[in-house]
């Protein structure tokens, strides 16, 4: 489609169309980016300037006072560390369950394969809902525990089906050749399928990481102990207390930082790790997600 690249061949109307289109996309992109810039600017502006309503786009009276405040709060570090525990532990457990499971479900020699798969897929259409899930976690003694959060959310039908479809698409001869060479199921999975499924695995791993990093609802519901809550729950406490409780907010106001700058600083601290892995996320979903995701 070389004609597409060669602008010289375009008519006047087409050129106008192309530029107008570019302009509109640019506008949308900027409006996507703006809130992040705004929050970032708030987080490094002087509290007084923010309270006076001076910060709209760029930082005013640059200061890291809000970060000082946030980073000197032990609760922040505790929650940050917890988030890392939940993210890393949760992702590892997820993969340990999902990868062998998806492999087994993809093998034609698995007896009752259709029914196992239906059992998995059914949970995409119907689930018991919040209350029975909560009561179940309580009955299992998984309230207020790291294990509860890590194990209780380790699997979901979508990821298993995504990976299973990928494994199913691997030509049968790969497995057969490995078997004739003497490989058992674990060796076939580890030495052949996992290396072949790298793009799909990367996608699932990143999805797990992002979901774990961002998850807050069940952490909020299941964890009572402040020392176990993840960053998102901590952040939520700050934000909602700001809106609900004026006295709490007033404790956060000094000349150098205000509650806006402090909550912005926490948000930025929470976004940064996502931004750091984002390039990989993007690369993998560009090629990975469509491979298995669409064919259900």
């Amino acid at each position: 489609m070389s004609f597409k690249e060669n602008m010289n061949l375009y008519s006047k109307g087409d050129k106008a169309f192309v530029y107008l289109n570019m302009f509109l996309v640019a506008m949308f992109t900027i409006s996507t980016l703006y809130p992040f810039i705004y929050v970032a600017s708030l987080s490094v502006s002087l509290g007084d300037a923010v309270t006076a309503g001076k910060v709209v786009l760029t930082p005013v009276d640059f200061t890291l006072a809000a970060y000082d405040k946030v980073l000197s709060d032990p609760a922040f570090w505790t929650s940050y560390a917890n988030t890392f525990i939940y993210t890393i532990g949760g992702t590892i457990v997820s993969l340990l369950i999902i990868v062998p499971g998806a492999y087994a479900l993809s093998r034609p020699q698995l007896a009752g394969r259709k029914y196992w798969n239906m059992m998995i897929a059914f949970t995409m259409w119907f689930n018991a809902g919040m209350i029975p899930f909560f009561l179940n976690m309580r009955d299992l003694g998984l309230l207020d525990s790291y294990i509860g959060i890590i194990i209780g959310f380790a699997c979901n039908a979508f990821n298993i089906i995504l990976l299973r479809n990928f494994f199913e698409a691997v030509p049968a001869s790969f497995e057969e050749a490995a078997r004739m060479d003497g490989a058992n199921d674990f060796q076939v999975l580890w030495q052949v399928f996992i290396p072949l499924a790298k793009p799909a695995l990367a996608t699932i791993t990143l999805f797990c990481i992002v979901a774990r990093w961002n998850g807050f609802f069940w952490a909020m519901v299941l964890l009572r102990d402040e020392s176990k809550v993840p960053l998102q729950v901590y952040l939520r406490q700050i934000i909602t207390q700001l809106t609900d409780d004026d006295t709490f907010a007033s404790t956060l106001i000094t000349a150098s930082y205000s509650y806006e700058t402090v909550s912005s600083a926490i948000m930025i601290c929470s976004i940064i790790p996502v931004l750091l892995i984002y390039p990989w996320v993007q690369k993998s979903f560009n090629k990975g997600i469509m491979l298995g995701g669409v064919k259900e």
Binding site: V210, N214, F216, R236, L242, E260, S263, M267, V281
Partner: peptide
């Protein structure tokens, strides 16, 4: 990008 940002942060941005 926003798809990968948590509800808490998005809400925080809106509230702010």
């Amino acid at each position: 990008l926003p798809h990968f940002i948590s509800a808490v942060i998005i809400a925080g941005i809106v509230i702010t």
